[in-house]
Design a protein around this nucleic acid. Sequence first.
DNA 1: CCGTTCCGGTTCATTCACTGAACCAGACTG
DNA 2: CAGTCTGGTTCAGTGAATGAACCGGAACGG
Lengths: 168, 168
Amino acid sequence: MVLPSTYADRNCSLARALEVVGERWTLLIVRDAFYGVRRFGDFATQLGIPRASLTSRLKALVEEGVLERDADGYQLTPKGVALWPTVRALMAWGDEFYSPAGVRRALLHDEDGGPLDAEGRCERCGSVVGVPDTRIQPGPGFQPTATNPDLVSQAMNQPRRLLDPIKL
Amino acid sequence: MVLPSTYADRNCSLARALEVVGERWTLLIVRDAFYGVRRFGDFATQLGIPRASLTSRLKALVEEGVLERDADGYQLTPKGVALWPTVRALMAWGDEFYSPAGVRRALLHDEDGGPLDAEGRCERCGSVVGVPDTRIQPGPGFQPTATNPDLVSQAMNQPRRLLDPIKL
DNA sequence: CCGTTCCGGTTCATTCACTGAACCAGACTG
DNA sequence: CAGTCTGGTTCAGTGAATGAACCGGAACGG
């Protein structure tokens, strides 16, 4: 089962979408890609995913056109970037019900620093903020890891714009 | 593994959310609950999920407070209803990239019949439409099944409001 | 009463995928 | 040319998903 293969209901776009991004790890890989992770080894260390699983997931995502591969590694295609509302909605749900101290990662409009509302609109200037103009940074619910984190995580925890490639 | 147990990154709300709704079938069960499915047997026949898997998923969702069980079966809690933006975003993504003929299920404001935009706002009256006021019905990309579908699917394919229990 | 059906499961053997550790090959580096 | 970094592949062990069969209580039906 490269993909979770045919869910029965052919009329459900949700089922179709889940065949692509519904497997364990897949959406976390996509999230890392939004954070600017590009290289195989960086995905592996940051997620703690077995390398064999990572290979299989990356291959599937490239075949589906969610990621594309170039000399620098893997990055999101427009189709992959279109998954942002999904990722944002799930993160918001997780923050709401599993992070009593507040959001772990805050989303801001990079140009004016205004916070984004639930629909991804800047509360300061009112415009709909595109993915590359979105800044992500630790929020009140952020918990610094006791053990010193790997370099990739350190880079990811700095305020940064989405899709900006991580340089080490 | 009742839940996909600890993804490494404790600072990611997405990982936390996926521990709850990230397993195969789980989000489809939640979707069916939005459609008004309540009974064990109805979930089983509509999804084609193995009954043992269904038992395990329903139990996990009840334990997590996403569903609650009563005499009529299972239904969404407020925490479960809060998953609607996630489900909507994934359905929209699936429609956009895997349904060339148009959306398979259209979302409308039940009161005035106006279509909903990407953020769940009624394009006719402009108000943000709550989940119980959302009507769902077959859209242009809907494909009637060749084989005659089960009664549950038949009921689900009629225009109906979300959360309205299915009566057979 | 007794038999039947419906419903919501459980049990169990099989299959399949995920895991983690080890291995490997090409590119670059000193 | 030896060593290391990167991006994998291989493989055995384990645990979860699958599907078919079984089960027990409640609600009919005669």
